[in-house]
Design a protein around this nucleic acid. Sequence first.
RNA 1: CCAGUCGGCCGGACGGCCGCCGCGCCUCGCGCGGAGGAAAGUCCGGGCUCCACGGAAAUACGGCGCCGGAUAACGUCCGGCGGGGGCGACCCCAGGGAUAGCGCCACAGAAAGCAAACCGCCGGCCUUUGGUCGGCAAGGGUGAAAGGGUGCGGCAAGAGCGCACCGCGCGGGCGGCGACGUUCCGCGGCACGGCAAGCCCCGCCGGGAGCAAAACCGAAUAGGAGCGACGAGGAGGCUCGCCUCCGCGCCUAUUUCCGGGCGUCGUCGCUCGGGUUGGUUGCUCGAGGCGUCCAGCAAUGGGCGUCCCAGAGGAAUGGCCGUCACGCGCGCCGCUUCGGCGGCGCGCCCUACAGAACCCGGCUUACAGGCCGACUGGCCCC
Length: 138
Amino acid sequence: MRENQASVSPEKGAEPAPFGRLRRRAEFQRVARGSRWQSEAFTLQAAKRGDEAAQGPRIGFTVTRKTGGAVERNRIRRRLKEAVRIAEKLDAKPDHDYVLIARRGALSRPFDLLRADLNRAFAAIHSRSPRALRDRDR
RNA sequence: CCAGUCGGCCGGACGGCCGCCGCGCCUCGCGCGGAGGAAAGUCCGGGCUCCACGGAAAUACGGCGCCGGAUAACGUCCGGCGGGGGCGACCCCAGGGAUAGCGCCACAGAAAGCAAACCGCCGGCCUUUGGUCGGCAAGGGUGAAAGGGUGCGGCAAGAGCGCACCGCGCGGGCGGCGACGUUCCGCGGCACGGCAAGCCCCGCCGGGAGCAAAACCGAAUAGGAGCGACGAGGAGGCUCGCCUCCGCGCCUAUUUCCGGGCGUCGUCGCUCGGGUUGGUUGCUCGAGGCGUCCAGCAAUGGGCGUCCCAGAGGAAUGGCCGUCACGCGCGCCGCUUCGGCGGCGCGCCCUACAGAACCCGGCUUACAGGCCGACUGGCCCC
């Protein structure tokens, strides 16, 4: 519990992940063509932003109706948002956009495991090739 | 104390650290506010916005349907009436019209709406284990329903055929604003069976689409697609391009009438989608919440005081932790009227149903657990 308490309040010097938010449908659709990485609780998608200069990473959340009712969807999105917020060092690149697509496991997965999943996902995502490239290779 | 009926309410509390959305300011930062009783289903009724429209009548379509009241309105609510259920508190009811007309009444049964007669009962005749002719509708049987019920008289056998009581119908009186009631009076031997969640008749109500409504800014008067049209003008004023009068055409279900608006004094006019789901407004002070008094059986209305109480937009109201309350499970101890009750410790769920999306009034549906009040029927004690 002490360790937990300590990790909840970030260190003064620790860099708070300065994520922007994705809000346009077109932005979501562009990221969907990028790389993806799956886990029990979510799918992470990532794509490099082409047009503008790097202004830090941006992230968006997708929780579809398949996942549950309005109450459960809200809960899932808030847990994912919070997990991203407290994450100390995610391997997010400033010129990339990310999208988290929630799966049903995100509702009940222990919060510590959820954070661990996130760290693993961001570490692995950039070694994957973009979806569009793989499709072209086929 | 047990069983039950009805109504109302709550639906975790407090604190710490780190965040999110909105507003304010002394713009580092601080302060304040931040989901529900159903926010849900989108089933009704309104406000608001646009289609320029407003009023009257008729037709078509749809909805509603005992009476009175409440309300902005309703299919809602309140108080009654009638019918049904319950020992009772109380609960349930698509509850207008069946002599305006049409239609239907499955199966069974002889017969399903107008009287008829299968088994029977009674009488006559005959070729007498029966047949035939006539009378009857009480008994049997079928059915959701078979032309009032019980008893006595009567008769060949019977039958409201006659009588008594009960019931029913009609008229009047009385009570009630009314639905309706009636222990009142009179008449009628007594049908006019049911279904209008079948058509229909009567009365009342209703234009359509919806905040992705709609308005403004910007991109911008650049190109595309579709549709319509060769038609009715005349007179006057005159700042020479408009205005006025008459006519013609159009105006959101259709037709007619009245008012109003727009178009037409000629060659273009109208509509649509994409770039465009960009930004701002609409967007929260409202049939508002709370308290109190008055009127009313009540729904509700009115007066006074007080408060400002979410405004997001890929959509804020969260994450973690501590303490407590509640619930569940296990163990131990004590009490016990053997149903349980109380205390301590540990563990679990850290709460059920469920998340505002323009705003109100209702309905319906979902809901762990708990609290309060009124009343009914039993048992025990005084």
